[in-house]
Amino acid sequence: KEMRNAYWEIALLPNLNNQQKRAFIRSLYDDPSQSANLLAEAKKLNDAQA
């Protein structure tokens, strides 16, 4: 469930391009235990690109 939530949050971040989203989501599938960390990194990048 945590992975699914992280997937959708990443997919809906407005300032990431599709390539960036795909990279984060690929990492999510590679290591679901890192969901919270990956989401935090994606949000950080999203904010930096705002």
Rank of each mutant, 00 (worst) to 15 (best):
residue 26 R to E: 15
residue 22 R to H: 15
residue 19 Q to T: 10
residue 10 I to G: 01
residue 49 Q to F: 05
residue 9 E to Y: 13
residue 50 A to W: 05
residue 24 F to V: 05
residue 24 F to P: 01
residue 5 N to W: 10
residue 19 Q to S: 12
residue 11 A to P: 01
residue 9 E to I: 13
residue 36 A to P: 08
residue 34 Q to I: 05
residue 5 N to G: 12
residue 6 A to I: 10
residue 44 K to G: 06
residue 40 A to E: 07
residue 30 D to N: 10
residue 49 Q to A: 13
residue 32 P to R: 03
residue 9 E to R: 06
residue 28 L to M: 11
residue 48 A to K: 12
residue 9 E to L: 13
residue 30 D to V: 10
residue 18 N to A: 09
residue 22 R to F: 08
residue 49 Q to M: 10
residue 14 P to C: 05
residue 18 N to W: 12
residue 34 Q to V: 06
residue 31 D to C: 07
residue 37 N to M: 12
residue 14 P to I: 05
residue 29 Y to Q: 14
residue 44 K to W: 11
residue 2 E to Y: 01
residue 13 L to D: 00
residue 27 S to V: 07
residue 29 Y to G: 06
residue 18 N to E: 13
residue 6 A to W: 14
residue 18 N to Y: 14
residue 35 S to T: 07
residue 16 L to D: 00
residue 47 D to K: 11
residue 32 P to G: 03
residue 16 L to T: 00
residue 6 A to F: 14
residue 21 K to F: 02
residue 46 N to E: 01
residue 45 L to F: 03
residue 40 A to T: 07
residue 32 P to W: 09
residue 33 S to N: 08
residue 35 S to P: 03
residue 19 Q to C: 06
residue 37 N to W: 09
residue 26 R to G: 12
residue 23 A to Q: 12
residue 13 L to R: 01
residue 23 A to T: 13
residue 45 L to C: 03
residue 13 L to K: 02
residue 8 W to H: 15
residue 13 L to N: 02
residue 37 N to R: 13
residue 25 I to Q: 13
residue 37 N to T: 06
residue 10 I to M: 03
residue 42 A to R: 00
residue 25 I to R: 02
residue 46 N to G: 02
residue 5 N to S: 15
residue 50 A to I: 13
residue 50 A to C: 10
residue 18 N to Q: 12
residue 31 D to W: 06
residue 27 S to A: 15
residue 37 N to P: 08
residue 7 Y to W: 14
residue 24 F to W: 01
residue 47 D to F: 07
residue 32 P to K: 03
residue 33 S to G: 10
residue 9 E to C: 04
residue 42 A to V: 02
residue 39 L to I: 08
residue 12 L to C: 12
residue 44 K to L: 07
residue 50 A to Y: 05
residue 11 A to I: 14
residue 44 K to A: 10
residue 39 L to G: 02
residue 47 D to Y: 07
residue 48 A to C: 08
residue 35 S to M: 12
residue 24 F to D: 01
residue 8 W to Y: 14
residue 45 L to G: 01
residue 36 A to G: 09
residue 33 S to R: 08
residue 1 K to D: 14
residue 44 K to D: 06
residue 49 Q to R: 15
residue 7 Y to V: 05
residue 10 I to D: 00
residue 7 Y to P: 03
residue 28 L to N: 00
residue 9 E to D: 05
residue 32 P to N: 03
residue 17 N to H: 07
residue 2 E to S: 13
residue 22 R to N: 15
residue 23 A to I: 14
residue 39 L to Y: 03
residue 3 M to A: 12
residue 19 Q to A: 10
residue 35 S to K: 14
residue 1 K to Q: 06
residue 11 A to Q: 15
residue 39 L to E: 02
residue 7 Y to G: 13
residue 25 I to K: 02
residue 47 D to P: 01
residue 42 A to M: 01
residue 47 D to N: 06
residue 10 I to H: 00
residue 46 N to A: 03
residue 7 Y to C: 06
residue 42 A to Q: 00
residue 29 Y to P: 01
residue 47 D to M: 08
residue 49 Q to Y: 08
residue 12 L to K: 14
residue 23 A to W: 10
residue 18 N to D: 08
residue 45 L to N: 02
residue 14 P to V: 04
residue 42 A to P: 00
residue 43 K to H: 12
residue 37 N to Y: 10
residue 46 N to S: 06
residue 20 Q to V: 04
residue 19 Q to Y: 09
residue 15 N to I: 01
residue 9 E to A: 10
residue 45 L to Y: 03
residue 1 K to P: 11
residue 36 A to Y: 07
residue 27 S to I: 11
residue 36 A to M: 07
residue 50 A to N: 09
residue 29 Y to H: 13
residue 50 A to P: 06
residue 41 E to D: 12
residue 28 L to V: 06
residue 50 A to V: 15
residue 17 N to Q: 05
residue 50 A to F: 06
residue 43 K to V: 09
residue 18 N to T: 10
residue 25 I to L: 14
residue 33 S to L: 06
residue 38 L to N: 02
residue 39 L to D: 00
residue 3 M to W: 07
residue 29 Y to L: 13
residue 13 L to A: 05
residue 20 Q to G: 00
residue 17 N to L: 04
residue 16 L to W: 00
residue 22 R to L: 14
residue 37 N to Q: 09
residue 46 N to M: 01
residue 12 L to T: 12
residue 26 R to I: 14
residue 18 N to L: 13
residue 7 Y to A: 11
residue 23 A to H: 14
residue 17 N to D: 10
residue 46 N to K: 01
residue 35 S to G: 09
residue 24 F to A: 07
residue 21 K to I: 04
residue 28 L to Q: 01
residue 4 R to D: 11
residue 44 K to S: 12
residue 46 N to Y: 01
residue 23 A to M: 12
residue 5 N to Y: 11
residue 27 S to R: 11
residue 43 K to G: 04
residue 36 A to F: 05
residue 3 M to D: 08
residue 48 A to G: 08
residue 11 A to D: 04
residue 30 D to E: 12
residue 12 L to I: 11
residue 28 L to E: 00
residue 5 N to L: 14
residue 47 D to W: 06
residue 41 E to T: 08
residue 13 L to S: 04
residue 32 P to V: 05
residue 22 R to K: 08
residue 31 D to Y: 08
residue 38 L to S: 03
residue 30 D to I: 08
residue 49 Q to W: 07
residue 32 P to M: 06
residue 48 A to Q: 10
residue 22 R to A: 15
residue 18 N to C: 15
residue 24 F to T: 03
residue 21 K to Y: 02
residue 16 L to E: 00
residue 16 L to S: 00
residue 34 Q to N: 10
residue 13 L to M: 13
residue 16 L to Q: 00
residue 14 P to Y: 03
residue 11 A to R: 15
residue 33 S to Y: 06
residue 5 N to I: 12
residue 33 S to D: 11
residue 12 L to D: 09
residue 16 L to P: 00
residue 41 E to G: 05
residue 24 F to I: 11
residue 40 A to C: 06
residue 14 P to G: 05
residue 5 N to R: 14
residue 8 W to D: 11
residue 13 L to G: 00
residue 43 K to P: 00
residue 12 L to R: 14
residue 47 D to C: 06
residue 5 N to K: 15
residue 41 E to K: 09
residue 9 E to W: 07
residue 21 K to G: 00
residue 19 Q to G: 06
residue 44 K to R: 13
residue 29 Y to M: 15
residue 16 L to I: 05
residue 20 Q to R: 02
residue 1 K to S: 11
residue 50 A to H: 12
residue 6 A to N: 06
residue 33 S to A: 11
residue 33 S to Q: 07
residue 28 L to I: 12
residue 28 L to Y: 03
residue 34 Q to P: 01
residue 15 N to L: 03
residue 23 A to E: 10
residue 2 E to G: 10
residue 16 L to M: 02
residue 3 M to G: 12
residue 10 I to E: 00
residue 23 A to Y: 10
residue 3 M to F: 07
residue 34 Q to A: 08
residue 19 Q to E: 11
residue 43 K to L: 07
residue 6 A to Y: 10
residue 28 L to A: 02
residue 28 L to K: 00
residue 8 W to N: 13
residue 36 A to E: 09
residue 41 E to C: 09
residue 28 L to W: 04
residue 25 I to G: 03
residue 45 L to I: 09
residue 36 A to K: 13
residue 30 D to R: 09
residue 29 Y to E: 11
residue 14 P to S: 05
residue 46 N to D: 05
residue 1 K to G: 08
residue 2 E to R: 10
residue 8 W to P: 01
residue 37 N to D: 07
residue 49 Q to L: 11
residue 28 L to P: 00
residue 44 K to Q: 07
residue 43 K to S: 06
residue 8 W to S: 08
residue 37 N to H: 09
residue 34 Q to K: 09
residue 14 P to N: 06
residue 31 D to L: 04
residue 15 N to P: 00
residue 41 E to N: 12
residue 25 I to P: 01
residue 4 R to H: 15
residue 40 A to K: 12
residue 15 N to R: 04
residue 12 L to G: 08
residue 10 I to W: 00
residue 17 N to F: 03
residue 20 Q to I: 04
residue 29 Y to R: 14
residue 4 R to Q: 13
residue 12 L to F: 12
residue 8 W to G: 04
residue 14 P to H: 05
residue 3 M to I: 15
residue 11 A to E: 10
residue 17 N to E: 05
residue 45 L to D: 02
residue 8 W to K: 15
residue 11 A to K: 15
